[in-house]
């Protein structure tokens, strides 16, 4: 089976709320595809539709060309982590994986393997109700890996992981993709995906905003701007603005300048005897790029701190 996820024009509404509004994208093998959007954008809904849990009002979602419901041993084709707390608190971690293994005819030794992979081998016999959030997350990942599937879908897998855990999962998912698998990872925090994703599918209010590679996105956001750090911020701003540049404040002592090349800026500042400590090409962070893109689509906006 080809390791791809293909979503075509899906629509889904719950009552009066439109969760997904005409979404189409494709997840290719060998890449980690980040699925990002603000809270309530429709990420989880989309994943559930792909897994056949919710039925779309229109459109289709297929994995390797086939609908999920038609897969004979689905856990061997697709592994998914939707909700880490979806476990019975009275059941032991091992037994939670055991029944999943039984349902798809997966041999028992695989349970030990995946528990070791995610680092839960020590607590296999403990009841899941006593697990910390991070441990539950790892258990969910173990479950997704049980059938060693070529397609993996993770809904916010980094929730509750400590920095070491995040570092581990980053490397882990990259290596899984390197094996030729198709990986779809959703998150609402860009920073988490910074060094992990190759492609990004950005959605907001149920609609596709961007479907692009990370490099392109960053390049577009960086936009030939110059980053300047100086103690005399207001004076520098005046000088540069007078020279026709557009200046944006990024910090107490930092600005971003667009419209002038870096050397020209250096010359202007030297002429005006304004000291500066740092100047260079502005490298947009994924976070910035993302905020730009989704500014209009953020549904749940906290007020700006004054």
């Amino acid at each position: 089976m080809e390791a791809t996820i293909d979503v075509q024009g899906i629509h889904k509404r719950y009552g009066r709320t439109v969760a997904v509004d005409g979404l189409s994208f494709r997840v290719e093998p060998g890449l980690v595809t980040g699925f990002v959007g603000p809270n309530g954008a429709g990420k989880s809904t989309t994943m559930r539709i792909v897994l056949g849990l919710d039925s779309p009002d229109a459109g289709s979602a297929v994995i390797g060309g086939k609908r999920y419901a038609s897969l004979r041993t689905p856990l061997r084709e697709v592994g998914a982590l939707l909700d880490a707390s979806a476990i019975h608190p009275g059941r032991r971690a091992r037994d939670h994986l055991l029944w999943m293994a039984h349902s798809n005819g997966i041999p028992r030794r695989r349970i030990t393997e995946v528990l070791e992979l995610v680092g839960l081998a020590q607590v296999a016999k403990r009841r899941a109700g006593g697990f910390s959030l991070g441990m539950k997350q790892r258990l969910g990942i173990a479950g997704a890996l049980l059938g060693d599937p070529p397609v993996l879908m993770f809904d916010e897998p980094m929730n509750g992981l400590d920095p070491e855990g995040i570092h581990w999962i980053r490397g882990f998912l990259r290596s899984l993709a390197g094996d030729g698998r198709a990986i779809l990872v959703s998150s609402h925090l860009m920073g988490e995906l910074q060094d992990m994703a190759d492609r990004l599918v950005v959605i907001g209010r149920g609609r596709l905003i961007a479907d692009t590679s990370v490099r392109e996105l960053l390049a577009a956001a960086s936009d030939n701007r110059v980053f300047l750090r100086t103690g005399s911020r207001s004076e520098a701003m005046t000088v540069l603005a007078n020279a026709g540049a557009t200046v944006a404040i990024t910090d107490r002592d930092a600005v971003t300048v667009s419209g002038l090349p870096a050397e020209r800026i250096v010359a202007l500042l030297t002429d005006a005897r304004l000291p500066f400590s740092e100047i260079g090409q502005h490298r947009a962070s994924l976070e910035e790029a993302y905020m730009e893109l989704t500014r209009e689509s953020v549904e749940f906006n906290a007020g700006e701190p004054s």
């Binding site: 093998p29 041993t73 005819g105 041999p107």
Partner: peptide, 9 residues
């Protein structure tokens, strides 16, 4: 190249 599951299900 597409990954294939190594598990005998």
């Amino acid at each position: 190249m597409t990954y294939q599951s190594t598990i005998q299900g």
